[in-house]
C-alpha cells in the first residue's frame, strides 16, 4: 500500500507523548541516574586505571583519557538502543500504550517521532551523567567538553532511528539479542572505543569508517581532549543519515504493523 511509504507528517501533539515517557522516567529517575553514572564510572576506572597501567600513552594521551571519549559514545549509544528496542517494544506491544494513544487525536507518525526524540533524550540524560563522571575524574581538558551533550542527543537519534527497525519487526524481546550481539557489540569493537582504529587491519579500518559509532567517536574524543574535531559536517551528516534513513524505514514498518 503506497500510503505506508508516504513521507512522515508530524504535529505538535508528539510533545504530549514525549511528556508521558518523561513522567515515567521521573518516577524511576533515581535508579536510572544511578545506573547511568555508576556503569561508565566502573568501566573507566577499571579499564582506564587497570588496563592503563600496562599501556603506554595512546595517541599521546593517557589510556583513561583516550577511553573517556569512546565510553561517552558507546554508553549513550546503548542508552538510546535499550530505550528504542526494549522500552519501545514494551509500550508498543506489551503494555499496548500506543494503542491507547492512537485512540486519541494523535497519529502514528507523531507517536514514533515522540519515541525517537525520547530515546535521544534518554541518551542525552545518560550523556549528562557520564560528563559528570568525566569532570569528576578530571578528564575534560576545557569547555569544549560541554559539546558532549548535543553529541549525546545526536547519538541517540542515530541509534534509536536504526534500532526502531528491530522494534517494528520484533515478535518478542528475544529478537533484540541479534541487534545487540551481531550489530552493536561488534561495532563497539570496530569503532575505536578501546583502541585506535589506526592500529587495525586496513580492511577493518575501511569497515570501521562506514560505522556510525566511529563517526560519533571522531567527534566525542577530541571534544574531551580539548580539541575542535575535524570534519564535523561529515561526521554529523553520516550520523544523521543513519538515524534518518533508519527512522523512515522503521516508520514504514510500524505503519504496516499497526495500521493494517
Amino acid at each position: 500500500m503506497s500510503s505506508d511509504l508516504s513521507l512522515p507528517r508530524f504535529s505538535w501533539r508528539w510533545i504530549a507523548v514525549w511528556r508521558r515517557n518523561f513522567l515515567v522516567w521521573k518516577k524511576l529517575a533515581a535508579e536510572s541516574i544511578f545506573g547511568n553514572i555508576v556503569d561508565p564510572l566502573f568501566y573507566m576506572l577499571g579499564m582506564g586505571f587497570g588496563l592503563g597501567t600496562m599501556l603506554p600513552e595512546v595517541n599521546g594521551v593517557t589510556y583513561i583519557a583516550f577511553l573517556a571519549g569512546g565510553t561517552v559514545c558507546y554508553s549513550t549509544m546503548f542508552a538510546a538502543s535499550f530505550e528504542a528496542l526494549y522500552s519501545g517494544f514494551a509500550r508498543m506491544h506489551v503494555q499496548r500504550t500506543w494503542d491507547g494513544i492512537l485512540n486519541a487525536p494523535i497519529v502514528l507518525d507523531d507517536v514514533v517521532l515522540a519515541e525517537w526524540i525520547w530515546a535521544a533524550s534518554k541518551s542525552l540524560l545518560s550523556g549528562v551523567a557520564i560528563l559528570l563522571v568525566v569532570l569528576a575524574l578530571g578528564l575534560a581538558q576545557n569547555w569544549l567538553a560541554i559539546f558532549i551533550l548535543p553529541l549525546a542527543f545526536l547519538i541517540g537519534l542515530t541509534f534509536a532511528g536504526m534500532g526502531f527497525i528491530m522494534t517494528a519487526m520484533a515478535k518478542s524481546y528475544d529478537f533484540f539479542t541479534f541487534w545487540f550481539t551481531i550489530v552493536l557489540t561488534p561495532m563497539v569493537l570496530l569503532s575505536g572505543v578501546f583502541y585506535p582504529v589506526g592500529n587495525m587491519h586496513p580492511i577493518l579500518q575501511a569497515v570501521s569508517s562506514a560505522l556510525p559509532l566511529t563517526h560519533a567517536i571522531e567527534l566525542g574524543r577530541p571534544l574531551l581532549l580539548g580539541k575542535v574535531p575535524e570534519n564535523i559536517l561529515l561526521h554529523v551528516g553520516v550520523m544523521l543519515a543513519y538515524g534518518g534513513v533508519g527512522f523512515y524505514i522503521a516508520l514504514v514498518l510500524f505503519r504496516r504493523r499497526l495500521l493494517k
Binding site: R13, A16, V17, R19, R20, L23, V24, K27, L28, Q95, R96, T97, D99, G100, I101, A104, P105, I106
Partner: peptide, 18 residues
C-alpha cells in the same frame, strides 16, 4: 491499556494531554 507506571489521576492527566 492503562499506564501501569501511573496512578489513577496520572492516567487521566496524561491521556487528557493527548
Amino acid at each position: 491499556n492503562l499506564d501501569p507506571d501511573f496512578t489513577v489521576t496520572e492516567n487521566l492527566v496524561v491521556y487528557g494531554r493527548y
